[in-house]
Deep mutational scan, measured.
Amino acid sequence: MDETGKELVLALYDYQEKSPREVTMKKGDILTLLNSTNKDSWKVEVKITVNGKTYERQGFVPAAYVKKL
């Protein structure tokens, strides 16, 4: 869990989004878990840094590609 009590997951593999509802992640990324009720895909939040500014983006990733921490 992070400092706000949200559950975290670790990306086990790289994943490139295939639709606007998904998010891209790299192996080793730590993501905030938002919903894990679907056995196939979990909703997560990723933090992306562009030019020194951090943005948050929500979307789905394959459940088999992440592990709860």
Rank of each mutant, 00 (worst) to 15 (best):
N51A: 10
T24V: 02
L69H: 03
R57E: 01
V50K: 09
D14W: 06
A11N: 02
R57Q: 05
L10S: 03
N51Y: 07
G5E: 12
V46S: 06
N35A: 08
K67C: 15
K43F: 15
T37F: 10
M25V: 10
D40C: 14
E3S: 14
A63G: 03
E3M: 14
L10F: 08
E22W: 06
A64H: 11
E7A: 11
K39R: 11
A63P: 06
I30G: 01
D40Q: 10
S41H: 15
L8M: 10
V66I: 08
V9Q: 01
P62T: 05
V44L: 03
K68S: 07
L10I: 15
Q58W: 07
E22C: 09
Q58S: 11
E7R: 12
V44R: 00
L69P: 01
T37A: 11
T37P: 03
M1D: 13
L12V: 05
E3R: 13
S19H: 11
Y15D: 00
W42C: 04
M1N: 13
D29S: 06
D29I: 05
Y13V: 11
Q16I: 14
K68M: 11
N38L: 09
K27A: 11
D40R: 11
T54N: 07
L12N: 01
L12I: 09
V61T: 00
V61M: 02
Q58A: 10
Q16C: 12
L34W: 03
P62V: 07
E22N: 04
Y13K: 11
Y13N: 07
G28Y: 03
S41R: 14
E22Y: 06
D14Q: 03
L33H: 00
L31N: 00
E3N: 14
D40L: 12
L69E: 01
Y65T: 06
G5A: 13
L10H: 03
Y55I: 12
T49V: 13
K53D: 08
V23W: 05
A64N: 12
G5R: 14
T49N: 09
M25E: 01
V50E: 10
L31R: 02
P20Y: 08
V66C: 10
K68R: 13
P20E: 11
M25K: 02
Y15F: 06
R21V: 10
A11I: 05
K26P: 01
R57K: 11
R21Q: 14
V50F: 09
L69K: 00
G59Y: 05
Y13I: 10
V46C: 09
E7Q: 14
L31P: 00
N51C: 12
Y13F: 12
E45F: 07
S41A: 11
T49F: 11
V61L: 03
L8C: 15
G5K: 14
G28I: 04
Y55C: 09
V46N: 04
L12K: 03
N38G: 09
G28H: 04
P62K: 06
K39F: 08
K39D: 09
P20M: 08
E3D: 13
A64Y: 09
K53W: 10
K18T: 11
G28E: 02
G59T: 02
L10E: 10
K26E: 03
S36E: 12
G59L: 06
Y65W: 06
T24F: 04
L33K: 02
T49D: 08
L12A: 02
Q16E: 14
T4W: 12
L12S: 01
L10C: 12
A11F: 03
S36D: 15
V44F: 03
Y15E: 01
S19L: 07
G59P: 00
D14K: 04
K47D: 02
G28K: 02
L8P: 03
E17T: 08
T37R: 09
S41D: 06
D40M: 11
V50Y: 09
K47L: 11
T54S: 09
M25S: 01
F60W: 15
Y15V: 00
Y13H: 09
K67R: 13
V61W: 02
P62N: 05
S19N: 14
Y13D: 06
T24W: 04
K6D: 08
E3G: 14
K53C: 12
K53G: 07
Y13M: 12
E45N: 07
E17H: 08
D40S: 10
Q58N: 06
E3P: 14
L69T: 03
E45R: 11
V46Y: 09
E17G: 15
A64T: 09
D40H: 14
D29M: 13
P62F: 10
K18P: 04
D14E: 04
E56A: 15
K18Y: 04
K47Q: 11
Y15G: 01
K47T: 14
E56M: 15
K43T: 06
K53N: 11
A63M: 03
E45L: 15
Y13W: 10
A11E: 01
S19T: 11
Y65M: 14
L34K: 03
A11D: 01
L31V: 05
L33N: 00
V61P: 00
E56Q: 14
Y15Q: 01
I30Q: 02
K43A: 07
K39S: 11
L12D: 01
K18M: 10
K68L: 14
I30K: 04
D29Y: 05
N38V: 05
S19C: 10
V66W: 03
D14N: 07
K68Y: 08
D40Y: 15
L31Q: 01
M1C: 15
K18H: 07
Y65D: 02
Y15S: 01
N35Q: 09
E7D: 10
V50T: 08
W42K: 00
N38S: 11
Y13G: 04
E17C: 13
T49K: 09
G52P: 00
F60A: 01
V61C: 05
K27Q: 08
N35F: 06
L69G: 01
N51S: 08
Y55H: 08
L33A: 01
A64V: 09
L12H: 01
K6L: 12
V44S: 00
E3H: 14
P62E: 03
T54F: 08
E45C: 15
